[in-house]
């Protein structure tokens, strides 16, 4: 499992596909927001937590159709499926690598990008924390969606159609936490639901993803 994780991370760093692009996409999204909403500092500060969560979510989604796509096209996935590595582990390793190359940098960059939207650093800390706990769920759900749309040509649009509704609970709890922090409320365990979704996704999605991979390789 570790070897597959390392290989995926190395590949995405070398090919420059996922690693930088999601981050840059996130930055551009943040830069475009004030153009759409006006430069009013207080308005921006008010909506910044939600915007940053939404931006991170879209950046995660954008890169998820390549998680299995490359390996499916060049035959690696078939070879992996016949190797001693169970497909559940293949899925987990790939989702973890996706998180490491997109979710993690996005979470760390979010408070910095938040400065552009007049988000104060304390709330930025909570944002970073909530993203660190929530983006693994986004990667897991995105990878699950990718196993479903594997054989579909130009499956990117279909993938977002399937995955975005599944993102709703994570987004709700994530944005809720940061919005509460922006209003000066204590954290009071509001990170727990986010963590629970991530852990729940780790528990159930490998099983279903392996099933979908098996069906797609038939």
């Amino acid at each position: 499992m570790i070897q597959l994780f390392t290989r995926d991370v190395v590949l995405s760093v070398r090919s420059g596909g996922g690693f930088g692009l999601a981050l840059v996409f996130f930055l551009i999204l943040v830069v475009l927001m004030p153009f759409a909403l006006g430069p009013d500092q207080s308005v921006l500060a008010k909506i910044a937590p939600g915007l940053l969560w939404l931006g991170a979510l879209l950046a995660c989604l954008l890169s998820s159709d390549r998680i299995f796509g490359m390996d499916y096209e060049d035959g690696t996935l078939e070879l992996l499926a016949t190797s001693p590595l169970p497909l559940e582990s293949v899925y987990l390793a790939k989702a973890a690598a996706h998180w490491f190359t997109t979710g993690l940098p996005l979470s760390l960059a979010a408070p910095v990008f938040g400065i552009l939207l007049n988000l104060n650093l304390e709330v930025g800390g909570v944002l970073c924390l909530s993203l660190l706990l929530g983006t693994p769920a986004l990667s897991l759900i995105g990878s699950f969606g990718a196993t479903l749309t594997l054989g579909v040509r130009r499956g990117g649009l279909l993938l977002s159609l399937l995955v975005l509704p599944l993102y709703i609970p994570t987004l709700i709890f994530g944005a809720l936490t940061v919005n509460a922090a922006a209003l000066g409320k204590e954290l009071d365990g509001s990170l727990i639901p986010i963590l629970a979704i991530t852990l729940g996704a780790i528990a159930i999605l490998p099983f279903f993803s392996a099933m979908a991979l098996r069906a797609n390789l038939q």
Binding site: D74, L77, E78, L79, L80, T82, P84
Partner: peptide, 16 residues
Amino acid sequence: GSVAYAAHAEGIKGSM
């Protein structure tokens, strides 16, 4: 016993 499979598509990663 254990099985290794080599398909038509070789699954080679060009950047490695």
